[in-house]
Amino acid sequence: MNFTPVMLRWLGSKHVPWAALTMGTGVVMVAAAPRLFAPYDPTRIDILHRLAPPLGWGGNAAHLLGTDQLGRDVLSRLIYGAQVSVAVGLAGALGAAAIGLLLGMSAGYFGGSCDAAVMRVAELILSIPVMLLALGVIGALGPSLGHLLLVLVLVSWARYARLVRAEVMRLRGRAFVELARVAGCGAIRIITVHILPNVLNPTLVLLALDIGRLIVLEASLSFLGVGVQPPAPSWGLMMASGREYLRTAWWLATMPGLAVLLTCLAANRMGDWMRDRLDPHRRTD
């Protein structure tokens, strides 16, 4: 498949969310190569310049967003923290989408007991509040980056499975699937060649909207101390430690939150835009 003309046609259309696209690209670039962008080493302690305010609030250009309680540069830590947030958000959403696609397509295509089994488990997962499920699993396994990722996939796959199953059920009775079966295609070939391309678009839209959700969830779990573990720089952890300094150094808790908010906003905005482009039946309400 050639994506370039598709991209160009998309960007040529009206209502392109330029701000969101720029923001999203910026965060991904910064996350991909934090070394190039960060002015300082995020773990460098400089006790003489601790708790320096940001530029414009009595600070100077040496530390644009100020420094934390150990004199570490907030901007540099934000940039390195983007790496964790983006990696976890993307990997979690992709993992969940892959598992959801696999299970949803099997459930929708084979029906019967396979369908019943997958859907009952999916409904059960969807009906336990996300944060409780996440805390229960992390409580049982112990906090670590791997377990965090596992939890994000575990709480997210069910939505993909439900969406994909419904689409497949709709497609299963259509003529092109029947014809493929008559022509002698096996189940695996029908699913991968004939059905998969038709369920990719809605899955992509859900994926785009999920990334923001997962970034916020990761920040929340890290904030509670059960996600990313220190000393790794993570937006959630930065807010947790900044919370102690709300009275004296407001920027410590404010800046990482703004980073989460803007990233998530950009991701959601792009997701909405993709939904309008890819899925004309389900426009934004």
Binding site: G212, V216, A219, S220, F223, M239, A253, P256, G257, V260, L261, C264, L265, N268
Partner: peptide, 8 residues
């Protein structure tokens, strides 16, 4: 509102 982290 939908993008803001609750605790922040």
């Amino acid at each position: 509102g939908q993008s803001i982290p609750v605790f922040w």
